[in-house]
Amino acid sequence: MRQLRLYLEFSRKAFQRSAAYRFDAWTRLFSNVIFLFMWGFIWFALYSGKGDVEGVSFESMLSYIVVSQMLQGVHGAGTPLWEIQERVRTGDIAMEMMRPYDYPTRSLFSDFGNIAFHFLTAVLPLYVVLFALFDLQIPTSMSQWILFLLSAVLGYLIRYSVELTFGLLTFWLMETGGVEDIFYFSISLFSGSVIPLWFFPDWLETLAYFLPFQGIFFVPNSIFVGQLTGQALIEAMLMQGIWLVVSYVILRWVWSRAALKIVVQGG
């Protein structure tokens, strides 16, 4: 309990810090909107002259892109990969290891603070307006809302575990250019952030199902636009849960190795 209070304190601090740097939050939103705009027009053009493609209407697809971009806006307020790498290189993380708390948890709670601020003051107002303005498809029942939120949170935690794991690899690699690009590519394609998995060629779709990334955006997005229901939904969320456990276990393992390395070699 006291531990939780401590971590919540980090959330509060991060929230205040975000408020102080709110200009940064808005500029981030600006680029988020440009990308939304871009993908909106791309999908509009792809669908022009077509009805449903693979059983999906343009309205559903547009909602998919908007909610996806919204979630990406939320994820974007967390600590980005390059910053984790920077913290490893400068020794900040090594320093934190001496403190009486668990760094991965503390960092997660700090991100919660940042996200809370960014979401409440920037993402939410903007996207409420967008959904209302374009009369987009939103969940029709309370249970759909709850499942979407739950799935989005699971997705966030998966991304957090994977991203921090990738970031911690910096302890072993002097230069991380390649690692970074593998991460960004995977997260942009296999997560279904801009192209839903149902438009993938079958073999690629199968591959994507066996990667953790689809749990980050594709599952919550699909629930949101009502493409994922019943049995399939349960399965997908179960899969998310499994991936969260797996990625968390990997994170803890990499973390303990990193901690060992710091203790032995001093970072």
Partner: peptide
């Protein structure tokens, strides 16, 4: 890092090309 940097840039652009390919697969 010198080589990873070069490889990394090449890969990230190849990634966008793959995205384009996936996009046009159904359309």
């Amino acid at each position: 890092g010198f080589f990873m940097n070069i490889l990394g840039w090449a890969m990230s652009y190849a990634g966008t090309a793959v995205t384009m390919w996936v996009m046009l697969y159904s359309f």
